[in-house]
Simulated scan of single mutants.
Amino acid sequence: MNREFDGEQPKMRILLVEDDAMEREKLLACLEQAPDVKVIDWTGSMSEALHLTEVQRPDAIILDIRLDEGDGVSFLYHLKELDMIRRPYILATTWTSDKATIRSILDNGVGFVQVKSQPGYQEKGPEMVLSTLRRMRPYFGFVDKPQGTQVNTSGMTVLDPDSAMRRRIAEKLGRINVKIGTVGHTYLVESILIASKNKSGVVDMENEIYPELMNKYRVTKWSIERIMRDRIEKTWKKTAVEILEQEYTQQVDPEKGKPELKEFISYYASLFR
């Protein structure tokens, strides 16, 4: 990883995920003055935060739980699906002091929760966040976790047989510019993976794909379907016709202007059986 150095120690590379403009500006003003910090980017969007995390590989993320698009809790779940050898340290900020919510985000990868309603935060919030990151920096390495692995009952680590296939599917979707890091991208990759395992060639959305995704991501069938359809529609709107015709050779209904969800999954699943 290419880093900028401050003296002998590399700067902390931080991604700021905060949708509130006033909060964001205060944090940026503090962080950008710190000699040991480099703010690599900021966003108020969950999907963009996932994309930036995968591409930029920050050392730490300051994550607001409430966002313009998506939310911090969902971000944590989708972060687990990214193929990363080294996970960033995550400091979450939130107005809630609800114990169940805080326990949930701590259990799903957050290293520290900064409650905005606590005394002193309104006056010195950014300084408190920076101070915590500096204290925790020596322990950033302890959040490293090999991806594409599972632990079997004997306690030995074994390779996840699906990790390589997920990368191949993602690479194929990348050729038509399905935006990586989005929830729709994640659902489409998983759906194609599931369908590719059915050697009969049948794509069973109702009995195989939707139930597995609903169980894995704890979301409704309606939400899964809507998000995947929306991602396909956006891809067909922004990608050049020449690229689509070259990469997606199955005929598309000219009146609809884009493939149906099931036929899209079926087409790509057939490439990986």
Rank of each mutant, 00 (worst) to 15 (best):
residue 198 N to D: 13
residue 218 R to H: 15
residue 154 S to T: 08
residue 219 V to H: 07
residue 185 H to D: 02
residue 143 V to Y: 01
residue 77 Y to T: 07
residue 178 V to P: 01
residue 107 D to W: 14
residue 26 K to Q: 14
residue 203 V to E: 02
residue 52 L to H: 12
residue 93 T to L: 07
residue 69 E to V: 15
residue 62 I to A: 02
residue 175 R to C: 11
residue 148 G to H: 06
residue 10 P to A: 05
residue 87 R to E: 02
residue 31 L to R: 04
residue 232 I to K: 02
residue 148 G to Y: 00
residue 242 E to D: 09
residue 110 V to N: 01
residue 147 Q to K: 08
residue 266 S to P: 11
residue 263 E to M: 07
residue 11 K to Y: 01
residue 131 S to A: 15
residue 175 R to Q: 12
residue 115 V to Y: 13
residue 165 M to F: 07
residue 181 G to V: 04
residue 252 V to T: 06
residue 147 Q to C: 09
residue 196 S to Y: 08
residue 168 R to M: 12
residue 33 Q to D: 15
residue 118 Q to N: 14
residue 246 Q to P: 10
residue 233 E to W: 15
residue 43 T to Q: 05
residue 191 S to G: 12
residue 167 R to D: 03
residue 81 E to W: 10
residue 166 R to K: 07
residue 57 R to N: 03
residue 38 K to P: 10
residue 132 T to V: 14
residue 8 E to T: 14
residue 88 P to W: 04
residue 150 Q to A: 14
residue 108 N to S: 11
residue 9 Q to N: 14
residue 124 K to H: 15
residue 76 L to W: 05
residue 232 I to N: 03
residue 39 V to L: 10
residue 192 I to P: 00
residue 123 E to Y: 12
residue 252 V to D: 06
residue 117 S to P: 04
residue 186 T to Y: 12
residue 65 I to C: 06
residue 58 P to H: 03
residue 30 C to I: 07
residue 175 R to K: 14
